[in-house]
Design a protein around this nucleic acid. Structure first.
Lengths: 209, 209
DNA sequence: CCAAAAATGGACCTGCAAGTCCAAACCTGG
DNA sequence: CCAGGTTTGGACTTGCAGGTCCATTTTTGG
């Protein structure tokens, strides 16, 4: 029962979502009023509630989905082609560059902790994003194992989980301290340890005994 | 010009901060109204504004400081005694246990993203916490280097930064996915890579070339 | 024991932002 | 070209949470 939307309607709806997303990235969820969105997107209150009958909550949900999708898109095509060490490096560089550029204006910052509480569904969106992200990384690890660049004993999912955690924490620390160092260190050390696995006799990818 | 506070006054103030902190941990910053704090701590509005003249913002700041301090206290005495591999393991176990137990009720969740935006000073509190935390870890790494348990070529600060990022990200992912796996993986893999550094000829602690 | 200061209780005010409503403008297909 | 919908504008309502105020009680220092 998708609501009947003419082309014009769809355009307006999209404009609202994109505008609200930008506004939220810039100033944070709870600083943005519906009036701000109206002003920024050239819409009226009637329109907002026409396209999002459940009001702010529904709008925030749409924004969350919009932002979550963007996070992964921003890492392409690197993220889907982790098939050589230079490719991993290129992905790493993209991440650093991206987060350095956006600084505090991080979509995740809006999603987590803020949207998460308000809209119950936002939690699901974030979770979905994380799993998709981790899957992509794990896929890269497995590919490297297939070419013999990463030791076969490494648990790809576990390695991906650790790497993803490092990224998330790195971004978090970028947000609070303003320094990119943590993200860099986490990425470099984790990737290096994967790289090193190939040369070891042992097995750094396993949990402690 | 510290405001004159009798013993009773101090007790009330402390009760308010502790109660507000608990309430916020439980239900999130923007779900907690001053009335909730009043009800939960058995205080009146007059008292709130007596002890926190700048209102909610000042209270949140006090709560943030309270929670930040607690985060490190909760890791003692392990965090200050990272002097052997079993000690590192004990610390790791404490972290896992702690965050597993508190689950979603994470003080950081309240601090970051939520308090961070509202109270300008909260940012500084979080930053301070992170640096202190990282310093403790780096100190542990250096100690292990002094006993020869970690390769001297490892950059202690960088390793600590990576580990801290892994922890933060792990907790973040615990909050969104509800699974402890990321935190475990990040801790174990990073610590293992430090442990492995001692046996390598090379130098896993350095950045990529 | 008594002033002065601190602590407490709670009624009241106020602003604001979400949400409601409806009338006007507009598209669109038959 | 007209009758149904969709889209738009904006005035109005409402609830609520933060903040103000002051009268009363308790504590403290001398």
């Amino acid at each position: 029962m998708t609501r009947a939307l003419t082309r014009k309607g769809e355009a307006t709806r999209a404009r609202i979502v994109a505008g609200a997303a930008a506004e939220i990235r810039e100033r944070g969820v709870d600083e943005v009023r519906l009036e701000d969105v109206m002003a920024h997107t050239g819409t009226s209150k009637g329109q907002l509630f026409h396209y999002f009958p459940d009001g702010k909550e529904e709008l925030l949900l749409a924004v969350a989905q919009h932002e979550a999708d963007q996070v992964l898109v921003d890492q392409e095509p690197m993220l889907s082609n982790l098939t050589s060490w230079p490719a991993w490096t290129a992905w790493r560089d993209r991440l650093i560059e991206r987060y350095l550029a956006q600084g505090v204006k991080c979509p995740l910052n809006g999603l987590l902790g803020q949207t998460g509480r308000r809209a119950p569904g936002a939690q699901a969106i974030v979770t979905g994003l994380m799993w998709r992200w981790q899957d992509k990384i794990a896929e890269g690890v497995r590919h490297m194992q297939s070419t013999g660049d990463i030791a076969p004993e490494v648990d790809a999912d576990r390695a991906a989980a650790a790497l993803l955690a490092g990224i998330q924490g790195g971004v978090l620390l970028l947000l609070s301290t303003g320094k990119i160092d943590h993200l860099e260190a986490a990425l470099d050390l984790t990737i290096d340890s994967l790289r090193a696995s190939r040369r070891d006799d042992r097995n750094p990818g396993e949990a402690r005994p």
